[in-house]
Structure formats: structure tokens, C-alpha cells
């Protein structure tokens, strides 16, 4: 169970940020070759990311690369570079249907064979940025066993919906649809970026909303947002206390070969145990909520 609360965006053409980002310790780092890179620098960013991925400093951190769409002159070249460089996850932008993922997957598999990488070791995630993507969220989420998550990207989506970003009402259906698709497919769900890095209060409000909805985490554009997010996702002391007791009871039941787990005279089923494990994992990653 990999914890994916924070996914930090890094512009692929920025050598300075690529050289230092690992110090911030987000759960995943996402190198961007798409919107954050100007047309002139597409080749330069691809090579920077190609080498950054092979830098030992990134060995202990989950790496994601957002490639350009495959229908641009850059997408396939991006893919050739990052699969060979050992990226953990390829993020496909502007995913409208399962067919988009299938196309990506066939290229990934070919490249894996060509470069001698274990077939299937490159994981995928899809960014959903349109009305069709939202409507097809379930088939996208279940399109491949390589899929580890789906992410909602708000900027293009609201344009497609003929509206604009506001208090979140405009994303209500999309968030719920993406989240349900992810839960059915048993993969992670990521929320949109919060682009005003100076508005801490607004950021925390949005984080609280998506946490309660059930998102695993959020895409971030500024390292300052990492700690805020991790803290918001950290369990309370009471939660940790309860989770520890659940796990202790489960261990005891297993040791004694009991078919039923009981705590304080109540029966505890598997989802409660799983939840308790996640609570403890979060607590271990960033302590209890401050």
C-alpha cells in the first residue's frame, strides 16, 4: 500500500528545481514535460528528466512523468526516454477514453521489451481533463492492470464544461465521478492543483474537502504545500490510538487462529482493519495532526 498524498509538479525544463526537489520529500514527484515546458524547450526538458530519473537522489522517491499527449510530435519521444530511464509511473494527460490508455500501454510494452525492462513494471496513471474523460472515468480506471491512479485536472475540464474555477461547485460532479471510478478499480484518486500558492487558507479548505470526499491526495505546484497537505492528512491522536487497538486485536485473533476479530466486545471486519492500517501508515509518515 503506497502512500500517495502529495504529488509535486516540477517543470521539466528547470534544471535548478530538478536538482533539488528530492529534498522536499513529497510522496511522489511528477516531472512535467507537457504544459510547463515551452515548445522551444521540449527536447531540453526531455533530456533533463531522462537524466534526473537516473540520478541516485531520486532512487528512493516515486517518480512520475507527465508526457505530452501521444498525438503531438513530442509524446512518443517523451515515452521512449522516460520508460528507458526507469520512471515508476507515466502520467497520460487529456485522457478521454480507455482507448487512450490502451494505445499508451502498447507503446510502453514495446519499449520495455526493447530496452530490457521487465514488462509491466512501468505503471500508468491517467489525467482526466474533459467531460468525456469524466463520463468514461470507470472504463479508464479499469483499462489496464498497470493503472495505479486517476487524477482530475481542473483547468481544461472547466473550459470543456463552459465554466470557470470557483469555490469547487464546478468540480463537484467530476470529483465524485473520478473518485468512484478509482474506488471501483481499487486505484488511487488525485485532486486538482491549487494554483494560488500564497493562499494558505484557501488551500487548506480545499484539502479538507477532498480529504473528506476520499481522495488519496492532490497534485501540488509548490513545495510549501507539501507539509500543509501531509499534516491535513495526518490522523488525530484518537484515530491512531483506536487504529493501534484494532491492529492489536487483529494480530491477537490471527495468532490464536480465531476466525473473528473482536474489540471491546464488538466484531471487527476486514475494511476496518484495512482502514486502521492506512491510519497507522499516515501517522508513521507524518505524525499526528497538529
Amino acid at each position: 500500500m503506497k502512500l500517495r498524498r502529495s504529488m509535486l509538479f516540477l517543470p521539466g525544463a528547470n534544471a535548478a528545481m530538478l536538482s533539488t526537489a528530492f529534498v522536499y520529500k513529497p510522496d511522489s514527484i511528477m516531472f512535467d514535460l507537457e504544459d510547463a515546458v515551452s515548445l522551444r524547450e521540449k527536447d531540453a526538458a526531455r533530456l533533463l528528466v531522462f537524466h534526473a530519473l537516473q540520478n541516485p537522489a531520486y532512487a528512493d522517491i516515486e517518480t512520475v512523468v507527465r508526457i505530452n499527449p501521444l498525438n503531438t510530435p513530442f509524446g512518443l519521444q517523451d515515452l521512449e526516454a522516460v520508460v528507458r530511464a526507469g520512471v515508476d509511473i507515466v502520467r497520460l494527460p487529456k485522457t478521454d477514453s480507455a482507448a487512450d490508455v490502451h494505445e499508451l500501454e502498447s507503446h510502453v510494452e514495446r519499449i520495455e521489451r526493447e530496452c530490457g525492462r521487465e514488462v509491466g513494471s512501468t505503471k500508468l496513471m491517467a489525467a482526466i481533463e474533459s467531460a468525456s474523460g469524466v463520463v468514461n472515468a470507470l472504463s479508464i480506471a479499469t483499462s489496464s492492470c498497470r493503472m495505479i491512479g486517476i487524477a482530475l485536472a481542473g483547468f481544461d475540464y472547466v473550459m470543456d464544461m463552459q465554466t470557470e474555477r470557483g469555490d469547487g461547485t464546478e468540480l463537484f460532479y467530476a470529483r465524485c465521478a473520478v473518485l468512484h471510478a478509482a474506488r471501483v478499480a481499487k486505484i488511487d484518486a488525485f485532486d486538482v492543483v491549487y494554483s494560488d500558492v500564497n493562499d494558505e487558507e484557501g488551500f487548506l479548505k480545499e484539502v479538507e474537502l477532498i480529504r473528506r470526499l476520499g481522495f488519496n491526495g492532490k497534485s501540488l505546484i509548490n513545495p510549501r504545500q507539501i507539509e500543509l497537505l501531509h499534516n491535513a492528512y495526518a490522523p488525530s491522536e484518537d484515530d491512531v490510538d483506536y487504529a493501534q487497538r484494532v491492529i492489536a486485536a487483529a494480530d491477537k485473533a490471527e495468532k490464536e487462529g480465531l476466525g473473528v476479530i473482536a474489540l471491546n466486545g464488538k466484531m471487527i471486519d476486514a475494511p476496518i482493519v484495512d482502514h486502521a492500517k492506512r491510519v497507522l501508515q499516515k501517522a508513521q509518515a507524518s505524525g499526528v495532526r497538529k
Binding site: A15, S19, D43, A44, L47, L48, A52
Partner: peptide
């Protein structure tokens, strides 16, 4: 003051261009 990986990437980019 670039890291080795940035040096490799930039030299390759310039030469390929």
C-alpha cells in the same frame, strides 16, 4: 554549479540541436 545529470542533459541537448 549544476549537478552532473544536468551537465549531461545540457551538453547532449546542445549537441543534438
Amino acid at each position: 554549479g549544476a549537478l552532473d545529470c544536468a551537465i549531461r542533459a545540457r551538453v547532449q541537448t546542445a549537441v543534438l540541436r
